[in-house]
Write a protein that binds this DNA or RNA. Sequence first.
DNA 1: CTGAAAGCGCTTACAG
DNA 2: CTGAAAGCGCTTACAG
Lengths: 343, 343
Amino acid sequence: MPAIADVARLAGVSKATASRALSGRGYVAAETRRRVQAAAAQIGFIASPDAASLVTGRTKNVGVVIPFVNRWFFGEVLEGIERALLAAGYDLTLYNLAPVGPERDRVFDFFLARKRVDAVVAVGVDLTDREVAVIARREKPIIALGGTAPGAPRLAIDDHAAAALATEHLLRLGHTRIAHLAGAGAGAAARSVQGQRRAGFLQTMSEAGLAPRGGVESVVVESEMSLPGGYSAALQLLGHPGDRPTALFAASDEVAFGAMRAAERLGIPMPSDLSIIGIDGHEYAELFGLTTIEQYPGEQGRLAVEAVLHLLGEGDEADPLPASGAPLATRLVVRSSTTAAPR
Amino acid sequence: MPAIADVARLAGVSKATASRALSGRGYVAAETRRRVQAAAAQIGFIASPDAASLVTGRTKNVGVVIPFVNRWFFGEVLEGIERALLAAGYDLTLYNLAPVGPERDRVFDFFLARKRVDAVVAVGVDLTDREVAVIARREKPIIALGGTAPGAPRLAIDDHAAAALATEHLLRLGHTRIAHLAGAGAGAAARSVQGQRRAGFLQTMSEAGLAPRGGVESVVVESEMSLPGGYSAALQLLGHPGDRPTALFAASDEVAFGAMRAAERLGIPMPSDLSIIGIDGHEYAELFGLTTIEQYPGEQGRLAVEAVLHLLGEGDEADPLPASGAPLATRLVVRSSTTAAPR
DNA sequence: CTGAAAGCGCTTACAG
DNA sequence: CTGAAAGCGCTTACAG
């Protein structure tokens, strides 16, 4: 492995000059720079990032904390982050951790407590004060995407508004018996993504004078935010004899797909007897004719990286923190899964 | 940020002793070790991995090259790798790169050419000789999982055998008009995963005396290995008037789901008029009643890490390279999507 | 069992 | 514009 000393020797300059010529920082005569670059290319020199980190204090590495990799939203976000980071010459260190458990503590107390990353972006996870403190103590910026991190900049869609919009869409179609397939923990964690969606639904319903007679539990069913989760929740909800809802607002498209599957299984004609709307804009949504509130996780990942780089002082210092404050883009896309309420 | 010198001072020992006490390498009196550990804990010292790498030459970091994150197989593998790496105290640096393109070159010529990772595991990607050489020159071991890397240890299921088994299953059910929904490039890249599956299908068919009259193109359709890919390929295949196949062997479960969707759309009753089998054991397979050849990507990821750690000399040197040579586990799981051929 | 010294491969003031 | 020197934070022979 050639070191910078080898380059310097070959180019007939000092290590300092070689370093300046290669990094582009500091003055170097054009001719000298060319000679150094040629020498580096000739022996295949590539600077050791670890050695550089040691003195600059910058690792050019960003940690990404994410609970899933194999759910559409998370996978898209991750790909978006990776693409943007790579383009900026940064590495991505992945911390894929279960929502709770000993692994999570280990990631925060050991992995992220070291000086291996310059910043962390937390995707779809609610960080505790303690977890934020661990990272803040190392003076590393945090960006929360989707989830929450107390005191950290947050990039997210307005989940409450998205849920309200989805619910409005169903109301306008004349539905009154509407149920919500919520994410697990929606009732308990009010500020979480699933909590906000549930709240947006309930508020819109009650503003329409449709407070549920049987209590909230009669119109909100929680399940894992996945296709199988939606399937089993919908199976219970729709299979129960009695006042079956005519419309379902699913907390995610994957949950909606599961619900569609359950309705098929139960022989409920769609959309005539059952309308379904989701949130996400999943890549399969078009194929399944699912009406949904689209969001753009790949782009969200890119924005998160932009914010991170800004916080790290890369690029134009003058620019404000991108997307700070304003909620991220969403769009209602109406397809065949929603129609007028049966009469 | 406390450094090891701070710990040493507080514990009243030298940096060398502090280092030995904390790392567990070298002799340290039990009492001294306790004192050092207490001091480290007191000031929240955690060794800088970069500084350690510089002298040990080990980064405790593994690079993962993977073309997708958001396809079931790849997502599962990634989670399996991450879990195993974390457990071993290693970081995972993600290189999610498009199958071809300038980004790919950049990853190999810059990112992986540096001394930032100890090893790389390449998932579902066929590395060129040049790419392997870049990494080998840095003396970093490579493990290929699913794809191929010339000269590197390979972990994979026997794709040819899996395809043969799937085809056999359909043949035994009396099907003779069987088509294969292959992955893109299956015909061109014989040694790739999709190429092997295609070959296994064709060989089994011809051994059964069922060489296609219309040429290979009449029974093999290539598409992207995704649900939408399978959908559009199957739509073409099944929508065409004439001798419609009675069974489909899809190169992956996601392709199979797409085909099921296409059949529904075309009003073809399943499984009575059309049997479908896939490969993967996708988490949705059970829900959709899909017969498939299961594989276990999470476990495969774990095995890949085991192999990497072994190559890096961690753990028992005596153990042989895990799973070297022998193909990884698969299992035929019969569900409702396959049945006897219509007569 | 412990410490002083050297060194891993860079970059950055500081002189000149 | 360039070089000598110091130093980032560790670990590892080498003495003792």
